[in-house]
Design a protein around this nucleic acid. Structure first.
Lengths: 198, 198
DNA sequence: GTATATAGTTTTGAATCCATACTATATTGG
DNA sequence: CCAATATAGTATGGATTCAAAACTATATAC
């Protein structure tokens, strides 16, 4: 099977997905904002993190987010810990929309894969993301499960286990674990360019 | 493994790939044009086919292509068979660029997959493309190998086998087979919505 | 306590895309 | 054959999106 053909498939799927192919009511950019803030963890609910995630400038992110705030899709609050920073979250109006996110088509397509296949598919994707991130210098994004900063907090609270982010030095609850994090670092330290997995 | 997380991986890869993450010298849109006309077969080297492939209007495609023609990246010729139609191809200037296409990073990432894994990866992608195409009504793109219009031409010419496109009623040589085709139709007729593979 | 870094915003200008209207050639159906 | 319609492509005008640069405000380093 030709690598170029596979790359073509991947790109076509990427186009459909991140283009306007799956959008109703909002523009692709607006959906991207809602999706991001719906799934980002509390360390990542900022304009800068969104900009990094999408590979755009902070200025562009700021503009787009401002528009969503004035339209009542996002609410904004200054961070108490850092007076420069801003925290963004979805309003109820936005939450009502997100349940009908047209990207669900893709989620269902993933769900329809045979169970045994799904895990392998995911690890292939993770591997390719790692290589591409390495080659392009772009940051990597992921969830706690495979993050180098993820640690067992040792204790419990109200019967629920507490985990720990060794980067933020903050406790993590169960509901934090599946969320996107700007500080994600692959579990095995990324090999230096030119060395490592080939 | 959570389907949403996998979807997130897929989208992130798609963003890097079709965004400006892998570009040098040309804009993402310009690379898209060069890639398309570098790999489209002779039935698909037209502005309309490009527009359909990328899900943009013919007007937008026409503009973008015009710019590439005036910059000397593409050459243009009216079709002899159809006086309305135009055929586009890469100039030598463009070919010199394409060999350094930054998307090669992704091709190499695919190439680096274990050989046994690659085929399975491709068929998962194909399957997802089929489902998404079905759900969104967008056209499907692919190569002869898995196309319903692909047939054995029976004969040979100068020792090389001749294949046949039953849609265009045209012979296909070996070098045509790996190219993108606007008329691609999946081999097994796509199941009607709500029926079939689940 | 000054210097520097970081988070975010604003402004300006360029690029991109769509909708619409248009020209030219093909095809279809009397 | 000819009118009606379809198709390939182009041109125009306006909206959106993004980057670059200049800017404000807070935080951190030395």
């Amino acid at each position: 099977m030709d690598s170029r053909t596979i790359t073509e498939q991947l790109m076509h799927l990427g186009r459909i997905v991140s283009g306007d192919g799956l959008v109703e009511g909002l523009t692709p950019g607006q959906w991207a904002i809602l999706r991001y803030f719906a799934h980002a963890n509390r360390f990542s609910q900022t304009p800068s993190a969104f900009a990094a995630f999408h590979g755009i400038t902070r200025g562009s992110a700021s503009q787009a987010i401002k528009s969503m705030v004035t339209q009542g899709y996002l609410h904004q609050a200054r961070s108490k810990a850092d007076g420069r920073s801003v925290r963004l979250g979805l309003t109820n109006k936005a939450r009502a929309l997100v349940v009908n996110d047209p990207i669900e088509v893709l989620v269902e397509a993933v769900e329809a894969l045979p169970p045994g296949v799904r895990g392998g598919f995911s690890s292939i994707l993770q591997r390719m993301l790692g290589r591409v991130a390495l080659a392009t210098g772009k940051p990597h994004f992921g969830v706690c499960e495979s993050c180098a900063h993820f640690a067992d907090g040792g204790g419990c609270e109200e019967g629920r286990p507490i985990h720990l982010c060794t980067f933020q030095q903050e406790p993590l609850m169960e509901e934090d674990l599946g969320r996107l994090c700007i500080d994600f670092t692959p579990e095995k330290p990324a090999p230096k360019a030119g060395v490592g997995l080939r």
